[in-house]
Simulated assay, not measured.
Amino acid sequence: MIKALVFGGNGQLGRSLMLCARDFPDIELTFLDRRKCDLSDLGAIGRAILDCRPDIVINAAAYTAVDQAESDIEQAFLINRDAVRAMAQACEELNAPLIHFSTDYIFDGTSQHPYRENDPVAPLGVYGTSKLAGEDAVRAATARHLIFRTSWVYSPFGKNFVKTMLSLMVQRDVLTIVNDQTGCPTSSVDLAGAVLRLVPSVLEKTFAGFGTYHLVSGSPMTWFDFAIHIHRAAVERFGADWAGNECEIRPVSSDAFPTVAKRPGYSVMSSQKFTDTFGFGLPDLAESLGACLDQLGEGENNA
Protein backbone atom coordinates (compact mmCIF):
# COMPACT_ATOMS: atom_id res chain seq x y z
CA MET A 1 0.00 0.00 0.00
CA ILE A 2 1.32 3.42 -1.00
CA LYS A 3 1.03 6.12 1.67
CA ALA A 4 0.33 9.61 0.33
CA LEU A 5 0.03 12.70 2.53
CA VAL A 6 -2.13 15.52 1.11
CA PHE A 7 -2.02 19.13 2.28
CA GLY A 8 -5.14 21.18 1.51
CA GLY A 9 -7.80 18.57 2.17
CA ASN A 10 -10.70 21.04 2.09
CA GLY A 11 -9.84 22.80 -1.19
CA GLN A 12 -11.08 22.01 -4.68
CA LEU A 13 -8.12 19.80 -5.48
CA GLY A 14 -8.05 18.14 -2.07
CA ARG A 15 -11.72 17.23 -2.26
CA SER A 16 -11.23 16.05 -5.84
CA LEU A 17 -8.46 13.74 -4.64
CA MET A 18 -10.88 12.35 -2.05
CA LEU A 19 -13.43 11.76 -4.81
CA CYS A 20 -10.93 9.99 -7.06
CA ALA A 21 -9.30 7.96 -4.29
CA ARG A 22 -11.93 5.23 -4.59
CA ASP A 23 -10.55 4.41 -8.04
CA PHE A 24 -7.04 3.90 -6.64
CA PRO A 25 -7.39 1.36 -3.79
CA ASP A 26 -3.62 0.79 -3.63
CA ILE A 27 -3.01 4.39 -2.51
CA GLU A 28 -3.83 5.30 1.08
CA LEU A 29 -4.45 9.06 1.22
CA THR A 30 -4.13 11.00 4.46
CA PHE A 31 -5.61 14.51 4.24
CA LEU A 32 -4.54 17.50 6.28
CA ASP A 33 -6.68 20.64 6.39
CA ARG A 34 -6.04 23.89 8.26
CA ARG A 35 -7.33 22.45 11.53
CA LYS A 36 -4.91 19.56 11.41
CA CYS A 37 -1.93 21.53 10.08
CA ASP A 38 -1.92 25.31 9.86
CA LEU A 39 0.44 26.15 7.00
CA SER A 40 1.37 29.43 8.67
CA ASP A 41 3.10 27.29 11.32
CA LEU A 42 6.16 26.24 9.34
CA GLY A 43 7.42 23.92 12.05
CA ALA A 44 4.13 22.02 12.07
CA ILE A 45 4.52 21.21 8.38
CA GLY A 46 7.78 19.37 8.81
CA ARG A 47 6.51 17.58 11.90
CA ALA A 48 3.38 16.43 10.08
CA ILE A 49 5.43 14.95 7.24
CA LEU A 50 8.04 13.32 9.45
CA ASP A 51 5.38 11.91 11.81
CA CYS A 52 3.37 10.43 8.92
CA ARG A 53 6.43 9.24 7.01
CA PRO A 54 4.54 9.03 3.71
CA ASP A 55 5.88 7.57 0.50
CA ILE A 56 4.86 10.75 -1.33
CA VAL A 57 3.49 14.20 -0.47
CA ILE A 58 0.88 16.07 -2.54
CA ASN A 59 0.47 19.79 -1.90
CA ALA A 60 -3.08 20.75 -2.86
CA ALA A 61 -3.03 23.88 -0.66
CA ALA A 62 -2.36 27.46 -1.70
CA TYR A 63 -3.19 31.08 -1.03
CA THR A 64 -5.43 31.80 -4.02
CA ALA A 65 -7.10 35.14 -3.21
CA VAL A 66 -5.60 36.95 -6.20
CA ASP A 67 -6.87 40.45 -5.43
CA GLN A 68 -6.47 40.21 -1.68
CA ALA A 69 -2.85 39.13 -2.13
CA GLU A 70 -1.98 42.62 -3.38
CA SER A 71 -2.41 43.93 0.16
CA ASP A 72 -1.81 40.68 2.05
CA ILE A 73 1.68 40.15 0.69
CA GLU A 74 3.24 38.56 3.76
CA GLN A 75 0.53 35.89 4.07
CA ALA A 76 0.60 35.10 0.36
CA PHE A 77 4.34 34.46 0.46
CA LEU A 78 4.06 32.58 3.76
CA ILE A 79 1.65 30.03 2.28
CA ASN A 80 2.79 29.94 -1.35
CA ARG A 81 6.54 30.06 -0.77
CA ASP A 82 7.61 29.45 2.83
CA ALA A 83 5.16 26.63 3.61
CA VAL A 84 6.03 24.96 0.32
CA ARG A 85 9.74 25.21 1.11
CA ALA A 86 9.09 23.51 4.47
CA MET A 87 7.27 20.68 2.70
CA ALA A 88 10.06 20.24 0.18
CA GLN A 89 12.76 20.21 2.86
CA ALA A 90 10.94 17.56 4.88
CA CYS A 91 10.38 15.49 1.74
CA GLU A 92 14.08 15.68 0.95
CA GLU A 93 14.88 14.47 4.46
CA LEU A 94 12.57 11.48 3.97
CA ASN A 95 13.57 10.96 0.32
CA ALA A 96 9.86 11.21 -0.52
CA PRO A 97 8.78 12.88 -3.78
CA LEU A 98 6.71 16.07 -3.64
CA ILE A 99 3.90 16.87 -6.07
CA HIS A 100 3.13 20.60 -6.09
CA PHE A 101 0.71 22.74 -8.10
CA SER A 102 1.44 26.13 -9.62
CA THR A 103 -0.41 28.52 -11.90
CA ASP A 104 -0.68 30.31 -15.24
CA TYR A 105 -0.34 33.58 -13.28
CA ILE A 106 3.45 33.22 -13.39
CA PHE A 107 3.20 34.46 -17.00
CA ASP A 108 2.39 38.01 -18.12
CA GLY A 109 -0.06 37.00 -20.85
CA THR A 110 1.77 38.58 -23.80
CA SER A 111 2.70 35.34 -25.59
CA GLN A 112 1.57 34.70 -29.15
CA HIS A 113 1.58 30.92 -28.64
CA PRO A 114 0.59 28.50 -25.86
CA TYR A 115 3.11 28.80 -23.06
CA ARG A 116 5.63 26.02 -22.69
CA GLU A 117 7.55 25.13 -19.56
CA ASN A 118 10.75 26.92 -20.63
CA ASP A 119 9.08 30.18 -21.70
CA PRO A 120 10.12 33.30 -19.76
CA VAL A 121 8.12 33.95 -16.59
CA ALA A 122 6.92 37.44 -15.62
CA PRO A 123 4.10 37.47 -13.06
CA LEU A 124 1.93 40.59 -12.99
CA GLY A 125 0.99 40.58 -9.31
CA VAL A 126 1.69 39.29 -5.83
CA TYR A 127 -0.20 36.03 -6.26
CA GLY A 128 1.76 34.98 -9.35
CA THR A 129 5.03 36.18 -7.85
CA SER A 130 4.43 34.19 -4.66
CA LYS A 131 3.56 31.05 -6.63
CA LEU A 132 6.70 31.41 -8.73
CA ALA A 133 8.71 31.78 -5.54
CA GLY A 134 7.14 28.55 -4.34
CA GLU A 135 8.27 26.78 -7.50
CA ASP A 136 11.81 28.03 -6.97
CA ALA A 137 11.73 26.93 -3.33
CA VAL A 138 10.75 23.40 -4.33
CA ARG A 139 13.48 23.17 -6.95
CA ALA A 140 16.10 24.42 -4.51
CA ALA A 141 15.10 22.00 -1.73
CA THR A 142 14.59 18.68 -3.51
CA ALA A 143 15.27 17.18 -6.92
CA ARG A 144 12.48 14.63 -6.51
CA HIS A 145 9.58 16.90 -7.34
CA LEU A 146 6.80 17.31 -9.85
CA ILE A 147 5.45 20.83 -10.34
CA PHE A 148 2.21 20.99 -12.32
CA ARG A 149 1.19 24.40 -13.58
CA THR A 150 -2.54 24.55 -14.21
CA SER A 151 -5.24 27.17 -14.81
CA TRP A 152 -8.90 28.21 -14.52
CA VAL A 153 -9.69 25.35 -12.16
CA TYR A 154 -13.30 24.30 -11.62
CA SER A 155 -15.01 21.41 -9.84
CA PRO A 156 -18.18 20.43 -7.98
CA PHE A 157 -16.54 21.77 -4.82
CA GLY A 158 -15.99 25.17 -3.24
CA LYS A 159 -16.16 28.46 -5.13
CA ASN A 160 -15.30 28.48 -8.82
CA PHE A 161 -16.47 29.91 -12.15
CA VAL A 162 -18.76 27.02 -13.06
CA LYS A 163 -20.71 27.13 -9.81
CA THR A 164 -20.86 30.92 -9.85
CA MET A 165 -22.20 30.95 -13.41
CA LEU A 166 -24.85 28.33 -12.69
CA SER A 167 -26.06 30.33 -9.72
CA LEU A 168 -26.13 33.64 -11.61
CA MET A 169 -27.86 32.11 -14.62
CA VAL A 170 -30.72 31.13 -12.33
CA GLN A 171 -30.86 34.55 -10.66
CA ARG A 172 -30.51 36.89 -13.67
CA ASP A 173 -31.98 37.34 -17.13
CA VAL A 174 -28.72 38.70 -18.60
CA LEU A 175 -25.06 38.09 -17.74
CA THR A 176 -22.09 40.06 -19.10
CA ILE A 177 -18.90 38.03 -19.18
CA VAL A 178 -15.32 39.05 -19.99
CA ASN A 179 -14.31 38.15 -23.54
CA ASP A 180 -10.70 39.39 -23.74
CA GLN A 181 -8.96 36.97 -21.37
CA THR A 182 -8.09 33.54 -22.77
CA GLY A 183 -7.10 30.42 -20.87
CA CYS A 184 -7.76 26.70 -20.46
CA PRO A 185 -10.60 25.76 -18.10
CA THR A 186 -9.41 22.67 -16.23
CA SER A 187 -11.29 20.26 -13.98
CA SER A 188 -9.67 19.62 -10.62
CA VAL A 189 -11.21 16.14 -10.72
CA ASP A 190 -9.22 15.50 -13.89
CA LEU A 191 -6.09 16.85 -12.21
CA ALA A 192 -6.63 14.61 -9.20
CA GLY A 193 -7.16 11.54 -11.36
CA ALA A 194 -4.02 12.26 -13.37
CA VAL A 195 -1.92 12.72 -10.24
CA LEU A 196 -3.10 9.50 -8.60
CA ARG A 197 -2.55 7.63 -11.85
CA LEU A 198 1.08 8.79 -11.83
CA VAL A 199 1.91 8.07 -8.18
CA PRO A 200 2.98 4.41 -8.55
CA SER A 201 5.37 5.17 -11.41
CA VAL A 202 6.78 8.23 -9.62
CA LEU A 203 7.80 5.96 -6.74
CA GLU A 204 9.71 3.55 -8.97
CA LYS A 205 13.49 3.76 -8.55
CA THR A 206 13.91 4.16 -12.30
CA PHE A 207 11.51 7.12 -12.61
CA ALA A 208 13.24 9.90 -14.54
CA GLY A 209 10.38 12.32 -15.12
CA PHE A 210 10.85 14.75 -12.24
CA GLY A 211 10.50 18.41 -13.16
CA THR A 212 7.97 21.04 -14.17
CA TYR A 213 4.96 20.42 -16.42
CA HIS A 214 1.93 22.27 -17.69
CA LEU A 215 -1.24 20.30 -17.06
CA VAL A 216 -4.43 21.85 -18.46
CA SER A 217 -7.32 20.90 -20.68
CA GLY A 218 -6.76 21.26 -24.41
CA SER A 219 -9.65 23.70 -24.84
CA PRO A 220 -8.47 27.34 -24.95
CA MET A 221 -11.29 29.89 -24.67
CA THR A 222 -12.34 33.18 -23.12
CA TRP A 223 -14.43 33.47 -19.97
CA PHE A 224 -17.37 34.39 -22.20
CA ASP A 225 -16.86 31.24 -24.29
CA PHE A 226 -16.65 29.19 -21.10
CA ALA A 227 -19.91 30.67 -19.82
CA ILE A 228 -21.62 29.73 -23.10
CA HIS A 229 -20.33 26.15 -22.74
CA ILE A 230 -21.57 26.01 -19.15
CA HIS A 231 -25.04 27.24 -20.11
CA ARG A 232 -25.40 24.78 -22.99
CA ALA A 233 -24.21 21.86 -20.85
CA ALA A 234 -26.55 22.84 -18.01
CA VAL A 235 -29.59 23.04 -20.30
CA GLU A 236 -28.66 19.63 -21.72
CA ARG A 237 -28.30 18.01 -18.31
CA PHE A 238 -30.83 19.83 -16.16
CA GLY A 239 -33.51 20.04 -18.85
CA ALA A 240 -35.60 22.76 -20.47
CA ASP A 241 -37.33 23.43 -17.15
CA TRP A 242 -34.04 24.48 -15.52
CA ALA A 243 -34.50 27.99 -14.10
CA GLY A 244 -31.41 29.34 -15.90
CA ASN A 245 -32.51 28.17 -19.33
CA GLU A 246 -33.47 31.62 -20.68
CA CYS A 247 -30.47 33.55 -19.34
CA GLU A 248 -28.78 35.64 -22.05
CA ILE A 249 -24.96 35.82 -21.98
CA ARG A 250 -23.26 38.85 -23.50
CA PRO A 251 -19.51 39.53 -24.06
CA VAL A 252 -17.77 42.55 -22.51
CA SER A 253 -14.25 43.88 -22.14
CA SER A 254 -12.38 43.26 -18.89
CA ASP A 255 -12.40 47.07 -18.50
CA ALA A 256 -16.01 46.66 -17.40
CA PHE A 257 -14.85 44.71 -14.34
CA PRO A 258 -11.76 46.44 -12.92
CA THR A 259 -9.82 44.34 -10.43
CA VAL A 260 -7.13 45.12 -7.87
CA ALA A 261 -4.72 42.61 -9.40
CA LYS A 262 -3.96 42.55 -13.10
CA ARG A 263 -4.75 39.28 -14.88
CA PRO A 264 -2.80 37.86 -17.84
CA GLY A 265 -4.80 38.45 -21.03
CA TYR A 266 -3.55 35.20 -22.57
CA SER A 267 -2.61 32.30 -20.34
CA VAL A 268 -3.04 29.28 -22.59
CA MET A 269 -0.48 26.61 -21.70
CA SER A 270 0.64 23.61 -23.73
CA SER A 271 0.51 20.21 -22.02
CA GLN A 272 2.55 18.55 -24.76
CA LYS A 273 5.54 17.87 -22.51
CA PHE A 274 3.29 16.11 -20.00
CA THR A 275 1.64 14.00 -22.72
CA ASP A 276 4.99 13.12 -24.30
CA THR A 277 6.45 12.10 -20.93
CA PHE A 278 3.56 10.21 -19.36
CA GLY A 279 1.60 9.02 -22.39
CA PHE A 280 -1.78 10.53 -21.59
CA GLY A 281 -3.51 13.88 -21.20
CA LEU A 282 -6.64 15.33 -19.65
CA PRO A 283 -10.13 14.73 -21.10
CA ASP A 284 -11.68 17.39 -23.30
CA LEU A 285 -13.85 20.13 -21.86
CA ALA A 286 -17.19 18.66 -22.95
CA GLU A 287 -16.54 15.42 -21.08
CA SER A 288 -15.10 17.08 -17.97
CA LEU A 289 -17.70 19.84 -17.71
CA GLY A 290 -20.48 17.32 -18.21
CA ALA A 291 -19.10 15.15 -15.42
CA CYS A 292 -18.88 18.19 -13.14
CA LEU A 293 -22.52 19.12 -13.79
CA ASP A 294 -23.60 15.52 -13.24
CA GLN A 295 -21.85 15.55 -9.86
CA LEU A 296 -23.49 18.85 -8.97
CA GLY A 297 -26.89 17.53 -10.03
CA GLU A 298 -26.51 14.49 -7.80
CA GLY A 299 -25.62 16.38 -4.63
CA GLU A 300 -26.31 19.38 -2.47
CA ASN A 301 -23.98 21.56 -4.57
CA ASN A 302 -26.45 21.78 -7.46
CA ALA A 303 -26.69 25.49 -8.25
Rank of each mutant, 00 (worst) to 15 (best):
A86G: 12
R139I: 03
T64W: 03
A44I: 06
A65H: 11
N95G: 15
D108W: 03
D55C: 09
L50S: 14
N118L: 09
P156M: 12
A143E: 12
D51R: 14
A76W: 01
D67L: 13
T110L: 13
A76F: 02
H145G: 07
L146G: 03
N95H: 15
Y127A: 05
S102Q: 11
P156Y: 10
E92V: 06
V138T: 02
A60N: 02
A96T: 07
D136W: 09
Q112G: 09
A62R: 01
A86Q: 12
S130L: 07
A143H: 10
G46V: 12
F107D: 01
V66Q: 07
R53F: 11
T110N: 13
T110Q: 14
S155N: 06
W152H: 11
R116C: 04
G158Y: 03
V84A: 06
A137D: 00
G109H: 06
L50G: 08
I147G: 00
I79Y: 07
D136I: 10
Y154K: 07
V153C: 14
I49H: 05
T110W: 05
R144H: 08
G134E: 00
L146W: 01
P97H: 10
S102L: 12
D119Q: 02
Q89W: 07
G128F: 01
H100T: 09
S111T: 03
F77Y: 14
A90G: 12
T142W: 08
D136K: 15
D82Q: 13
I49K: 05
V138F: 01
R144Y: 02
V126C: 13
D136A: 15
Q112I: 02
R47S: 14
D51V: 11
I73N: 00
V121K: 09
Y115C: 09
E135N: 09
N95D: 15
S111P: 01
P156N: 14
Q75S: 14
C91G: 13
R139W: 00
S102N: 14
F148E: 00
I147R: 00
A62T: 03
L132W: 00
D55L: 08
A86I: 10
Y115P: 03
A141R: 04
L98W: 06
G125Q: 10
S130P: 05
R116L: 01
I73W: 00
E93M: 14
Q112F: 01
D82L: 13
V138K: 01
L146P: 01
F107T: 02
H100F: 14
T150C: 04
A141M: 05
T150K: 02
L94Q: 08
D108V: 05
H145N: 12
N59V: 04
G128S: 03
A96G: 11
A90S: 15
L50R: 15
P123A: 04
Q68Y: 10
Y154A: 07
E93P: 11
D108M: 07
E92R: 14
H113R: 13
P97W: 06
D72C: 07
A141Q: 04
N95S: 15
Q89A: 13
Q75P: 06
Y105I: 06
P114H: 02
I99A: 11
D72S: 10
Q89F: 08
E117G: 04
A96Q: 08
V57H: 09
Y115V: 07
D51Y: 11
D55T: 06
E74F: 12
V57G: 10
